[in-house]
Design a protein around this nucleic acid. Structure first.
Lengths: 189, 189
DNA sequence: TGTATTTCTTGCCAAATGGCAATTGCGTTT
DNA sequence: AAACGCAATTGCCATTTGGCAAGAAATACA
C-alpha cells in the first residue's frame, strides 16, 4: 500500500487524509496466470496498481497469433487508458503472465476521488501522459535498431524482467521471432 | 482559421465567443524549409497548428545521423508536449521539411485561454493523449511487420504524404535504409 | 511420480535487409 | 546553358533474420 502512495507522490502532493481516502477505496485482487484483466471489445471499468506479478498488453492477428505491446510489472498502473477514461471498448487484452496481485479501483471510486481530492485528476493525466510518451520513445527507438541491440536495451532498461517473462512473448515485444531471440541470447552471455 | 476550430470541435464544444477568444490569440507564422520549430535542449514556449507544410519530429545519434520519429502535417498540432507542458528542455527537434505556415500560441496565451475557457485544458489533454495513444499503436504495429508492409501501411494511413517527404526521412521513420526503401518502391507500382 | 503439454533451442536453408560505392536524376545557382 | 549539390536508385555482396521441423528442456497436470 505504501508503494502505491510513494508512486503517486512522484506526480503530486497528497496529505494524510487524502492518502487514507485513496487506500480506503483500493480493493485487493488476485489474478491467476493466463487470466485477463481486460479484454478487447469490453469496456474496462477497473484500474489496477500491480503489487505482484507481471501483465502484458497484447493483441491477436487474424491468424490467432498474439503480439505483446508492452509489459506491466510491480508498482505500475495497469489499465487500458482510453477504455477506462472514455468508456469505450478496449482495443487490446491485458493478460496476467504470472499469478498477480493488484490494488484495484473501480471507475466510480476513481471519479469520487476526483471530486474529493483536488489534483487527483491532474495527477493521472500526468502519469498516463508521462508513461505514454516514454513508451512511444522506447518503441520508436527500437524500430531503428537491430534485434540484438533491442534485446540488450531491454535487459538494460528492465533489469531482471527477461528472466520472468516467456521468451516467445518477449520476442513478439521485440518484433523478432522466438528462434532469433534464442540465437541472440546464445551469443551474449 | 476555420480548420483549427473544426479540429478543436472534434474534442469538445466551443461557443462563438470562445472561438473568437482562441482566434484572437493565434499568431500567423512562416517557417522556412530546414528551420526548426523546436530544438533539443531548449524549452518549447510555443504550440503550433499547421496550416500548410510538413514538419518532422526527429533526433540525432552520436554519429550525427538523424532519425524521424513522426511527421506532422496540415491541420494537426505540432509541439513537444512535455517541454511545452512542464517547461523542461525538449528532447527532440521539430524540423520544417517544407516551407510551413502555422497558427502559433504562446505558453502564456495558452494558459490564459485555460482560465477563460472552461474545458480548454481538458480538451488538450484529450487531444494529446488521443494522438499519443494512436502513435504508440502505429509504431508498435510497425515493429512486427517487414519493411514492405510498413511502407504499404504508411501509404494507406497517410495518403499522398510519401510524395511530399524526402525518402531518406521516410526511410528512417520506417526503420529501414534509403536503399531498401528504394528497392521496395520499385517492386510496388 | 509419471505423463502430457508447452516452451525453448538448434540446424538447415531461403529470404530480407544492410553496407558501400558508383551512377543517375533533379532542382538550384550562377 | 553549364556546373554544382543533394537526393534517389542500382549493383554487388555480406550479414541478419525468418521459416520450418526436430529435438531438448522445462512446466503443468493428473
Amino acid at each position: 500500500m505504501e508503494e502505491l502512495i510513494a508512486y503517486l507522490l512522484q506526480f503530486g502532493y497528497l496529505n494524510f487524509q487524502q492518502r487514507e481516502l485513496i487506500l480506503a477505496k483500493a480493493k485487493h485482487w488476485r489474478i491467476a496466470k493466463g487470466a485477463y484483466f481486460a479484454e478487447a471489445g469490453k469496456i474496462s471499468t477497473q484500474i489496477g496498481y500491480v503489487t505482484d506479478g507481471i501483465f502484458r498488453v497484447c493483441y491477436y492477428d487474424k491468424q490467432g497469433d498474439s503480439f505483446t505491446r508492452y509489459f506491466v510489472y510491480e508498482n505500475r498502473f495497469v489499465v487500458d487508458v482510453s477504455s477506462f477514461r472514455d468508456e469505450i471498448p478496449s482495443a487490446e487484452y491485458i493478460e496476467a503472465i504470472t499469478d498477480c496481485q493488484l490494488l484495484v479501483f473501480s471507475r466510480e471510486d476513481f471519479i469520487q476521488l476526483s471530486a474529493l481530492i483536488p489534483g487527483w485528476h491532474d495527477m493521472f493525466v500526468k502519469i498516463t501522459s508521462y508513461v505514454l510518451e516514454n513508451k512511444l520513445k522506447v518503441t520508436s527507438n527500437m524500430l531503428v535498431q537491430d534485434a540484438q541491440k533491442r534485446y540488450l536495451n531491454f535487459l538494460d532498461h528492465y533489469p531482471g524482467l527477461a528472466n520472468r517473462v516467456p521468451l516467445n512473448m518477449l520476442a513478439s515485444y521485440l518484433g523478432i521471432t522466438p528462434s532469433s531471440l534464442s540465437r541472440i541470447r546464445k551469443n551474449i552471455p
